[in-house]
Design a protein around this nucleic acid. Structure first.
Lengths: 213, 213
DNA sequence: AGACTCGTTGACTGACGAGTCAATCTGGCT
DNA sequence: AGCCAGATTGACTCGTCAGTCAACGAGTCT
């Protein structure tokens, strides 16, 4: 499999992975050919199979690599006990949005190709994805315990809503349904937290239970 | 193409579409063969191509058919002027969640294969998907105008968060990350609206802007 | 130099599966 | 009965592409 390249030598494995990001993002995982990745990397077809067992393995690698970085980041944010929960969520949202801002292709691949394939691929991905929800839920749970968050909304449920809102924003950017400017990215970080934590309503009704149809 | 079947005769076209729902949901659109659909429908391979031009057309058909129903439903909900915006959103959430409850396979296919894959398929779908966001945004906008919703969160942004939260819940059910019981479905309808409209926090800070890291 | 290892090449193979098509069936109509 | 139109069949074609492999190159050690 992969060997550590001599210093100064180009890391072909990395080169191929980066090419895969570009190609997967542009054409989609299922619609591109392995030869497209090789071409993009400026490398012979066979070399791809020197470093990876299969086309799918490249996708796995890209996902696991990036997702782990995110899990670590969320973990670190959660560990900063001096921060109030809302601020933690703000940092989490910021991290994910910045991930997209700096590596839109990679995030596109992860969201569009992996989340979607989570059913046909191994359970490893689902487990990793779940980890993120769990970590976010922990932040929410601490807020429920200190009384700032509502009791009747479970932490797990809230975490799904929070993450879903963020992922939807990324989807909006990915598919050009939302404007992509630096200001928008920055605003989104604050607004998504404001929307989920503070709610859309101006003055909430804390005692009034939700309307039922 | 398709002809109206004699009354009493089985509508083979419908039979094939229903089989496609099952097969696409189980194996995924890309991983299944057209013969799988034919087998599931108990029909000869060639008949699939009598009713549909391609494998993709079946998916298009399933999506457009169902999505239009949803767009109509949202439109009708929005038209009921006697309802407060929050209640409208509650009905929209209820409609989508019930769609999943009654036809989980179909919704799985739409979410997993179309909504998230709008990338590789034609832009027609994107336009249809956007319509849903726009309609939800209209509901939010009316709430902003009558002063119940915050001014600093745009209707479009709020609509994305709202829809994203709901789709994430469906994803959670689809991938068995959330429990699927009748009670959960019912609770979710109310809670997702409560989370987004009322917010997660017990007492919001209307004057205090969000903290910035 | 010779031998060995590991990176690199790209033509080739083999399987797979979408889509075709000529033949067959069915039921209605005259 | 004989004819026709549309439904139905499934074996076959044919392009595509993931994955293989035998050969070549470049650096290293003895």
């Amino acid at each position: 499999m992969a060997a550590t390249p001599r210093p100064g030598a180009v890391d072909k494995r990395r080169l191929i992975l980066d090419a895969a990001i570009t190609v997967f993002a542009q054409q989609g995982f299922h619609h591109c050919r392995v030869s497209d990745v090789a071409d993009e990397a400026g490398v012979a077809y066979g070399l791809v199979y020197h470093y990876f067992d299969s086309k799918e393995e490249m996708l796995n690698e890209l996902f696991l690599e990036r997702w782990q970085i995110m899990l670590d980041a969320i973990g670190e944010i959660d560990a900063r006990d001096e921060l109030p929960p809302r601020e933690k969520l703000h940092l989490v949202a910021g991290f994910i949005i910045d991930s997209y801002r700096h590596e839109p292709d990679l995030m596109k691949v992860i969201i569009v190709e992996v989340t979607r394939a989570a059913n046909s691929f191994g359970r490893i991905h689902l487990e990793k994805i779940r980890e993120a929800y769990v970590k976010i839920a922990e932040i929410v749970e601490s807020a429920r315990q200190d009384g700032t968050f509502k009791q009747d909304i479970s932490a797990q449920f809230a975490a799904m809503c929070f993450y879903g809102a963020i992922e939807q924003l990324l989807s909006g950017w990915i598919f050009d349904l939302l404007p992509q400017t630096e200001e928008e990215f920055e605003r989104a970080k604050t607004l998504v937290v404001e929307a989920i934590c503070g709610g859309l309503e101006v003055s909430p009704s804390p005692s009034t239970p939700a309307v039922s149809g």
